[in-house]
């Protein structure tokens, strides 16, 4: 099998285990972090700090490179403009995140753990993503779809 497929699988595995270790896979803990006015659990700020500390090193290492260690072209987002799509989309995402305590990665981990409620959330999330594709493809051919992160 192609090496990049194996590395994608292992990356997903490490990512999922990281979500389990950190507590992010538990919506109750996520909501305790987002509840500034209640009994606040600051743990998730440290998840972000830990992830960015390691990420900073990696993204510094790839600066100036054109290919990955496995010879794949480096595909970094090229869009620089802060537009309405970015801001409104992110504001909407935060509302959905705050309603249930799930963002996409943790919902997949909870689904993998056999949680029925996570399956319902993931089903709805896929429907939302499908709706986005439908709306995008209804647009005239001249407009470019957003380059995803």
């Amino acid at each position: 099998m192609n090496k990049t497929f194996i590395s994608a699988f292992v990356t997903g595995l490490v990512f999922g285990i990281g979500l389990l270790v950190s507590g992010m896979a538990n919506p109750d803990k996520v909501l305790s972090f987002l509840d500034l006015a209640g009994a606040w659990d600051p743990s998730l700020a440290l998840v972000m700090a830990g992830a960015i500390a390691v990420g900073l090193i990696a993204f510094t290492l790839v600066r100036g490179r054109s290919h990955s260690l496995l010879g794949e072209p480096l595909r970094l987002p090229t869009k620089k403009t802060i537009d309405r799509r970015l801001v409104l989309g992110s504001l909407g995402f935060g509302i959905g995140w705050g309603l249930a305590g799930f963002c996409p990665g943790p919902a997949l981990v909870a689904l993998g753990a056999g949680e029925l409620k996570a399956a319902v959330f993931v089903g709805a999330m896929l429907a939302g993503m499908g709706l986005f594709e439908l709306l995008e493809h209804r647009k005239p051919a001249s407009s470019q779809p957003a380059k995803s992160q």
């Binding site: 089903g123 993503m129 986005f132």
Partner: peptide
Amino acid sequence: LIIAGLLVGISTRYGAGCTS
């Protein structure tokens, strides 16, 4: 969960990314 999932799905695509 359904409302939250729909909102997360469409908004993360529209905003080109999520927490990760």
